[in-house]
Design a protein around this nucleic acid. Structure first.
Lengths: 342, 342
DNA sequence: GTGAAAGCGCTAACAA
DNA sequence: TTGTTAGCGCTTTCAC
């Protein structure tokens, strides 16, 4: 603890070990120590060893805030979801986090809320961190928000959708195609009287509209619609079926906008003594973990959420490393998993 | 675009608007602009207006990396979960994120993996960001990890448990008390032959041990045990009941270490024609969203995960603002929600 | 209430 | 391959 004789201005930051300390201990210049840490190939074996020893001895952990400021590369990526409580995007966030972690990036989580309030404050908080990328899942449709993102110059990946006018990069699938495919699939199964139970959510609405249009084209009767608030729950699924029954609106098939809703419909069917699939076919969306193991097993639309996360990570890392990203739009597709509930 | 006459070394960072630009436009010193942004009360109304106008005109967004470096307060909090895919901790992460966002902090997400591998790399990544706090949920039990955390000097909140030797701060509940309470509860319901289906997880194990010990003290026969891999799933719940039946190990009650397992047990019971609760009582753990709406509704242990998140946020903000935190351990308790499945 | 100077810990640019 | 210098954009300390 050698104090300076004239300690005019002491700041001494956090008091943690710095690269300077390591460099001094190793007997090299700070920048050399920096290279030993970040680009070990561009440094002699001897220096590498000395610096490595010094790090081990001091327990040095690089300050990424300082590094990010100096290099204008924060190695931070923001992921924005409506809410973390919806199980839908979790797989994407998980694989995104993992793929990025492998490359030395961390994920900052932002919850926009379905309402779209706070969007502005959230954007401010995100942009202020100067992340190397922003991954959006199912949100940010206000023109003002899009403008700010664009203005920030930060690479943006939109996911879980295929919009005609992406902000920047895009990995998702067509909700319209899903709606059409499910209608066709059910028609081929011999089902004729459809209902839809859907969360009050823009993309669910697009699936549903396509579904209804396809049903109409197939010459089927009008599709009955029950809208429930987002986020969807088992409870609202139960309520929706109860309502259909109460209205004596008999249908032979229900397409739900989430697996949780489907589970709710099936639960209510069980409680009411309605046989699935004999009397009622149920289709979900998402193919959550539990869908395959329900009784009866749930037919549902499978989205490879993990692949979406990985692709998003790839996009961002590519950009951060200065690589050209092309194409900037990836259609990850979907598949209908045919199980017992239909 | 006035270029300097002799641009020796241009670095020009990110090219974004800086506080300097704002200050110049407002006709004040940078530090004054800084005060206008961060401590508006310590600035005259006139300055406040000029700076506000300049910010609006330029679209300035403060660089929190730079601010964090200078002030040694990153306003970043790391939250570590085993995996984001387990629904158990989500409510905690959600309320933590929200409570912190209100105070201007962001959450960085870390996934440790149940295996405990990568723990070291994760710690390095976290500490390197110099977060103002670290919230741990259900992990970090390696002595080496604890040592590093301690050495980093960063405030740590452990959650979802009540350990005898916390690293720093702690908000949770007693898993032993849960096990005992559930055993007593079931005994009072007239149940006598217990089984446990539990994930291979340290804390589930503690609940279960306490549960078995309590059953023994009540003079009940030995508790049958089925251990399934973590994270727990509906499928492993189904498998567990199937196994019990296959082994002709008849029990009248199953205590599951998660609601998902309980749902699996109930699903399998339904498939096998076993009546719940008449022939078999089922108790879950977690009181997830769907538990109340199952058929029959699931009796389970309720943990106020949101309260845990809020308390953790409080702990960290208090510390960051230099307040004394006392007490540093909060028992959030639990409750048994008595529904139809028992 | 406002400002000048210094520096948080690191890396880009340039030079040797 | 290594080192020197000058910042990255902000806030602290000290002075008025």
């Amino acid at each position: 603890m050698t104090q300076d004789a004239a300690p005019r201005r002491s700041r001494r930051g956090s008091g943690a070990v710095t690269l300077h300390d390591v460099a001094k201990l190793a007997g090299v210049a700070p920048i050399t120590a920096s290279r030993a840490v970040n680009t070990p190939k561009r440094v002699s074996a001897e220096v590498l060893k000395k610096v490595g020893d010094a790090i081990a001895r001091t327990g040095y952990v690089p300050n990424l805030l300082a590094g990010g400021l100096a290099s204008t590369r924060s190695r931070l990526v923001a992921a924005v979801v409506p809410t973390i409580l919806g199980p839908v995007f979790l797989e994407t966030v998980q694989s995104l986090t993992e793929a990025l972690a492998e490359q030395g990036y961390q994920v900052m989580l932002g919850q926009a809320g379905y309402a779209g309030t706070r969007e502005d404050a959230l954007l401010e908080a995100i942009i202020g961190r100067r992340p190397d990328g922003i991954v959006l899942t199912g949100i940010m449709h206000s023109p003002e928000g899009r403008r700010r993102l664009l203005a920030s110059g930060i690479p943006v990946v939109e996911t879980w959708d295929l919009t005609p006018t992406p902000i920047d990069m895009l990995v998702g699938f067509s909700h319209v195609a899903v709606g059409q495919a499910v209608a066709k699939f059910l028609y081929q199964k011999g089902r004729r009287k459809f209902a839809v139970v859907a969360g009050d959510d823009e993309r669910a609405k697009r699936r549903l509209d396509a579904f209804r249009a396809a049903a109409q084209e197939l010459g089927l009767p009008a599709v009955r619609l029950v809208v429930v608030p987002a986020p969807t729950t088992l409870r609202s699924g139960r309520g929706a079926l109860a309502q259909l029954v109460r209205d004596r609106d008999y249908v032979d098939t229900i397409f739900c906008s989430s697996d949780l809703l489907a589970l709710g419909v099936m639960t209510e069917a069980h409680a009411l003594g309605i046989q699935v699939p004999a009397q009622l076919a149920v289709v979900g969306f998402g193919d959550l973990d539990f869908a395959a193991d329900l009784h009866p097993a749930l037919t549902t639309v499978h989205i490879n959420g993990a692949a979406i996360g990985r692709q998003a990570a790839q996009f961002i890392v590519d950009r951060a490393e200065g690589r050209q990203v092309d194409p900037r739009v990836v259609d990850i597709g979907f598949s209908i998993v045919d199980r017992q509930s239909t």
